[in-house]
Design a protein around this nucleic acid. Structure first.
Length: 303
DNA sequence: AGATGTTCCTGGATGC
DNA sequence: TGCATCCAGGAACATC
């Protein structure tokens, strides 16, 4: 299940394997993979052909590769945008290798080298070509760095970005009338935090998932942020989390972080701080794992 | 308008 | 053994 650290691992892999290379052609093997691209699969493929892939960028769980016309000097105005969803993979490898069962899109390059493949079993992920526009959540960076894909202008900065504003995040939390976990999963408040890392951040902060956001103190909000940063940083250090074979990095190697999780998936196992068995609640049609002792349910809960 | 519920998808695990 | 059902979850979209 790719969340921010896993997507960053993929981004780094692409930086090494596709930067500076020119796409020759693209083949869409399943239209659902480009469903968000209104102009359709043929136009999608046409937009990639002949364009140079620059260094990939990331915000939260979204990944994009700026596309430059060959020989052009101006800043790129379009990008190939990717979201891996539940089971998406971006794989780089020998062009002649066997086709994966769930291969959705294949891009080959003019140099005849490694191809780029989008493989996605559950097809929650997608690719599209889009415009790059000025960033409203982040701060302007070096030339061309202040641009983000138009379809994700509403996605907030993620906690590992310099542009992330903790005070603005705290203010947004206090204005909301909802539970802290729902807020953490809302990509317009903070991006890159999914179900797994939300539970981990709350365990580290000692807060229950149903804690009303409007009652959070600045210190509590800071603990949640710090927890998210720590757990995602640790996951990044070991190459991402993997619970099954669905997540692999760009070269097909799995991550090794799952053994380090403190809450997620540990139902009935002892809390690593106090020994109380971890409990599982169903919330938002998802599992939430927490320690009943370290993360007591608030008297007034919000969902 | 903000909060909350629904939906999309596949295949491994589980139950009878 | 075989078939049916459950479960995983990001985020757009629908509804209250």
């Amino acid at each position: 299940m790719p969340e921010l650290p896993e997507v960053e691992v993929v981004r780094r892999g692409l930086e090494r394997w596709t930067s500076g290379r020119t796409a020759a052609s693209a083949e869409v093997l399943h239209p659902r993979a480009v469903r968000r691209y209104a102009a359709g699969p043929a136009d999608f493929a046409g937009r990639l052909a002949g364009r140079v892939m620059l260094a990939p960028r990331r915000r939260g769980k979204y990944l994009w590769i700026p596309l430059q016309d060959a020989g052009a000097a101006q800043e790129p105005s379009e990008a190939l945008l990717a979201h891996l969803g539940m089971s998406g993979q971006l794989l780089v490898g020998e062009p002649g290798r066997e086709r994966e069962k769930h291969l959705r899109v294949r891009i080959v390059f003019t140099d005849g080298g490694h191809d780029l493949r989008f493989v996605d079993q559950r097809t929650f992920g997608h690719l599209m070509v889009c415009e790059l526009v000025p960033d409203t959540f982040g701060v302007p960076g070096p030339a061309g760095q202040g641009l983000v894909p138009e379809p994700i202008v509403h996605i907030a900065a993620d906690p590992l970005e310099e542009a992330f504003d903790p005070e603005a995040f705290f203010g947004a939390l206090r204005r909301r009338k909802t539970g802290i976990k729902r807020a953490l999963l809302d990509q317009s408040l903070i991006s890159g935090v999914g179900n797994i890392y939300a539970d981990e951040a709350l365990w580290r902060a000692g807060l229950h998932w149903a804690r009303p956001t409007e009652t959070l103190t600045r210190a509590e909000a800071a603990r949640v942020l710090e927890g998210a940063r720590e757990v995602m940083g640790a996951a990044l250090d070991v190459g991402g989390t993997s619970f099954d074979s669905l997540y692999v990095n760009v070269n097909g190697e799995s991550g090794y972080f799952e053994r380090s999780l403190d809450a997620y998936g540990r139902r009935d196992e002892p809390c690593r701080r106090c020994g109380t068995p971890i409990r599982r609640d169903v919330f938002m049609n998802r599992s939430s794992y927490s320690c009943p002792t370290c993360q007591p349910r608030p008297r007034r809960a919000r969902y």
